[in-house]
Amino acid sequence: MTKHRIFTTSVASVYPHYVTKAEKKERTKSEVDEIIRWLTGYSQKELEDQLEKKTDFETFFAEAPKMNPSRELIKGVICGVRVEDIEEPTMKEIRYLDKLVDELAKGKKMEKILWKQ
């Protein structure tokens, strides 16, 4: 079975779209970065290094320092698919990220997006 092309796409090529989506709704690049750091455990410097290296999504998630266990609480539909029904692990991680950025762009508070009590 061939890999979905998003797996070999660099995070750096999609990242500006995440930021643009957020900024169109009066949110910030730093909030997008916070979401990515929360999800993956990367520090800001590590995230910037991954973007600079043009790391692909598959490697980006495989090398993530500590995937947040609370990410499994993320539910809902993104790109017409229920996140909780996705079986392929890397695709699930990508859709978690998509869903979090989507929630940010919809105006949700960061405390709700990042499952802070």
Score class of each variant (00 low, 15 high):
residue 79 C to E: 14
residue 85 D to L: 15
residue 31 E to R: 03
residue 95 R to A: 11
residue 51 L to S: 05
residue 54 K to F: 01
residue 45 K to E: 10
residue 97 L to Q: 00
residue 68 N to F: 03
residue 82 R to M: 12
residue 67 M to G: 05
residue 83 V to N: 06
residue 33 D to S: 14
residue 50 Q to D: 09
residue 25 K to T: 11
residue 76 G to Q: 06
residue 25 K to L: 09
residue 37 R to L: 12
residue 27 R to H: 09
residue 28 T to C: 14
residue 97 L to G: 00
residue 102 D to T: 01
residue 84 E to C: 09
residue 26 E to P: 06
residue 28 T to I: 10
residue 30 S to E: 10
residue 62 A to K: 15
residue 34 E to M: 08
residue 95 R to I: 08
residue 66 K to M: 12
residue 37 R to A: 03
residue 30 S to Q: 09
residue 34 E to F: 05
residue 23 E to T: 13
residue 86 I to K: 13
residue 62 A to R: 15
residue 23 E to A: 08
residue 96 Y to F: 14
residue 53 K to W: 07
residue 49 D to H: 10
residue 47 L to T: 03
residue 39 L to A: 15
residue 54 K to C: 08
residue 84 E to K: 10
residue 91 M to D: 07
residue 32 V to W: 01
residue 62 A to N: 14
residue 88 E to D: 03
residue 41 G to V: 01
residue 25 K to G: 01
residue 45 K to V: 07
residue 68 N to Q: 11
residue 98 D to W: 01
residue 80 G to N: 12
residue 44 Q to H: 14
residue 78 I to L: 09
residue 41 G to M: 04
residue 31 E to V: 00
residue 37 R to C: 13
residue 51 L to F: 09
residue 65 P to W: 04
residue 99 K to I: 00
residue 41 G to N: 06
residue 38 W to M: 06
residue 85 D to N: 14
residue 23 E to C: 02
residue 45 K to W: 04
residue 53 K to N: 12
residue 70 S to K: 15
residue 28 T to V: 08
residue 63 E to Q: 14
residue 94 I to Y: 08
residue 23 E to I: 11
residue 40 T to I: 07
residue 98 D to K: 07
residue 52 E to W: 06
residue 33 D to Q: 12
residue 47 L to D: 03
residue 81 V to W: 15
residue 101 V to M: 14
residue 23 E to R: 13
residue 55 T to W: 01
residue 59 T to F: 13
residue 43 S to K: 08
residue 23 E to Q: 15
residue 99 K to G: 00
residue 93 E to K: 10
residue 27 R to D: 01
residue 35 I to R: 08
residue 95 R to M: 13
residue 39 L to Y: 00
residue 48 E to L: 07
residue 32 V to F: 02
residue 86 I to Q: 15
residue 80 G to E: 09
residue 46 E to D: 14
residue 63 E to A: 09
residue 89 P to T: 04
residue 74 I to A: 10
residue 72 E to P: 00
residue 42 Y to L: 03
residue 25 K to F: 11
residue 62 A to D: 15
residue 45 K to N: 12
residue 101 V to Y: 11
residue 99 K to P: 02
residue 86 I to D: 11
residue 61 F to M: 13
residue 63 E to Y: 08
residue 94 I to K: 06
residue 22 A to W: 04
residue 89 P to Y: 08
residue 57 F to P: 01
residue 54 K to I: 00
residue 70 S to N: 12
residue 59 T to H: 15
residue 88 E to H: 06
residue 39 L to W: 02
residue 84 E to M: 07
residue 72 E to C: 01
residue 55 T to D: 09
residue 22 A to L: 05
residue 23 E to N: 11
residue 82 R to G: 10
residue 36 I to G: 02
residue 27 R to C: 02
residue 91 M to V: 00
residue 97 L to W: 03
residue 68 N to M: 04
residue 62 A to T: 05
residue 46 E to C: 10
residue 88 E to G: 01
residue 93 E to C: 04
residue 28 T to W: 12
residue 51 L to E: 11
residue 87 E to P: 04
residue 34 E to G: 07
residue 66 K to A: 15
residue 97 L to T: 00
residue 47 L to H: 05
residue 51 L to W: 01
residue 73 L to F: 07
residue 26 E to R: 13
residue 83 V to K: 09
residue 97 L to H: 00
residue 47 L to E: 04
residue 78 I to V: 15
residue 86 I to N: 14
residue 24 K to L: 15
residue 87 E to T: 05
residue 74 I to W: 02
residue 91 M to W: 02
residue 26 E to Q: 13
residue 74 I to H: 04
residue 44 Q to W: 12
residue 30 S to F: 04
residue 62 A to L: 15
residue 35 I to M: 12
residue 78 I to M: 10
